[in-house]
Design a protein around this nucleic acid. Structure first.
Length: 408
DNA sequence: ACCTAAGTCAAGC
DNA sequence: GCTTGACTTAGGT
């Protein structure tokens, strides 16, 4: 049976989707590509998502949009974990249901919580309903049987497509969860509450016992040097600071373990040194002894010297300035998180970006996803103000601020 | 068994 | 909300 190609345009109040699909083998295998394109103030992730469709279980998780399933290059694909906890919406004849969170997600595609679009207009033509992809079509399931913690960071995008673990505890440490959440955010920073919300939205397990795990999250944020608190600038009033990842923490989970890093990212100096005594002091002393030429724990950037930038009045950053150790087996040549480089943010689909789509296109008001200014180097106000943004060629003196809404 | 990263509880601000 | 201490739990070797 010849594949039947089709194209659908889908325009909602928030997003325009173009759905290109190929329905083959009597609906046994369906390949879809979704291209959410920016309309009024949303991110313009031109990802190309391949979804093995099971009509009733098609597209609804917001994470699907943030973390589109692996593009399989036209190969058939069955997500082995695609089950009842995978996607909850449905497309049906003549209409589609777009998840409510699309219009009001904390995940970053929209910044307008008051303009939820729980039910967007119907698809304009045919049904997307199909039978489930046959198991024999599975090709992407090279997943390790030993558990998701064996995934590489580059495979993080698959996490939600493998299910959200229902009410079982996801096999990720709090540090992993925080990192994921920050990585997927468009401007790579979140407030505490946004962090909570993201975790709860992705992993239902954490909708319970919030006091317990949220305390642990806070502890992780404060305790781990890989997380950097960025104060709000005066023009962004609100509760709490932003949290981001330290520029130099690298890919902490590239060793494939999301429960436990091989080595804690630790800074030599902190703004206010922690008191050390007992077991923790002992642990820190061990870290200091890591040798630069140690093949296992090679420094990403040995003894980094970071220039302090002149900060605008009202801006404070409480961070140390040098790195003494890094994580895992990363070498100096391996990629570090680059705020300008979406390819370094594995939680977002990393293929088929066009250059014009590398940055958020425009922003609505009232959100962290609404930086007042986006500079030509891709940094927003806050990043311009961080001590360690040494890659900022403007050295803290941004010039051409780009107006919100401008195409970059 | 040992080391240490991660998690928990909670005090203090 | 944030930091920190003290302690327990658990992963990696």
């Amino acid at each position: 049976m010849n594949p039947e190609a089709y194209h659908q345009d889908y325009t909602g109040s928030e997003l325009t989707y173009q759905i290109d699909g190929v329905q083959a083998n009597g609906g046994q295998q369906n390949l879809y590509q979704l291209y959410p394109t920016s309309t009024n103030g949303l991110l313009n992730y031109n990802y190309s998502s391949y979804v093995a469709a099971n009509g009733s279980n098609y597209i609804s998780s917001p994470s699907t949009y943030l973390n589109p399933s692996t593009k399989m290059g036209g190969s058939s694909y069955l997500n082995p974990k695609m089950g009842s906890n995978y996607l909850t919406g449905s497309f049906s004849q003549g209409g589609g249901v777009i998840p409510s969170s699309i219009g009001a997600s904390s995940l970053g595609f929209t910044t307008t919580p008051t303009t939820s679009s729980a039910s967007l207009p119907a698809l304009n033509s045919r049904s997307l309903t199909s039978t489930i992809v046959s198991a024999s079509g599975a090709r992407a399931s090279s997943s390790p049987t030993s558990g998701l913690q064996q995934l590489t960071l580059q495979e993080l995008e698959k996490i939600t497509s493998r299910g959200n673990f229902g009410h079982n505890k996801p096999p990720y440490s709090y540090i992993s969860l925080i990192t994921m959440a920050i990585e997927q955010s468009p401007v790579k920073r979140l407030t505490l509450s946004e962090l909570y919300n993201w975790i709860m939205e992705i992993f239902p397990y954490y909708r319970n016992h919030q006091q317990k795990w949220q305390n642990s999250i806070r502890h992780s944020l404060s305790f781990n040097d890989c997380f950097v608190k960025v104060q709000r600038s005066p023009d962004k009033p609100g509760k709490g600071s932003f949290w981001t990842l330290h520029d130099l923490c690298g890919n902490m989970f590239e060793n494939g373990c999301y429960l436990r890093r091989q080595k804690r990212f630790k800074l030599k100096e902190r703004g206010s040194p922690r008191k050390k005594r007992g077991v923790q002091a002992k642990q820190d002393l061990v870290k200091v002894e890591i040798k630069e030429n140690n093949p296992t724990y090679q420094l990403i950037t040995p003894k980094v010297e970071v220039k302090e930038e002149v900060l605008p009045a009202g801006t404070t950053v409480t961070q140390p300035t040098s790195v003494i150790s890094s994580v895992g087996t990363l070498g100096a040549t391996q990629s570090q998180m680059n705020l300008n480089n979406p390819y370094s943010t594995p939680y977002i689909y990393t293929g088929n970006y066009s250059s014009s789509l590398l940055q958020p296109q425009s922003f609505l008001s009232g959100s962290i996803y609404n930086p007042t200014n986006i500079y030509s180097n891709g940094y927003t106000d806050t990043y311009q103000n961080t001590l360690y943004s040494s890659t900022d060629p403007t050295n803290g003196s941004p010039t051409s601020a780009i107006a919100p809404g401008a195409n970059l």
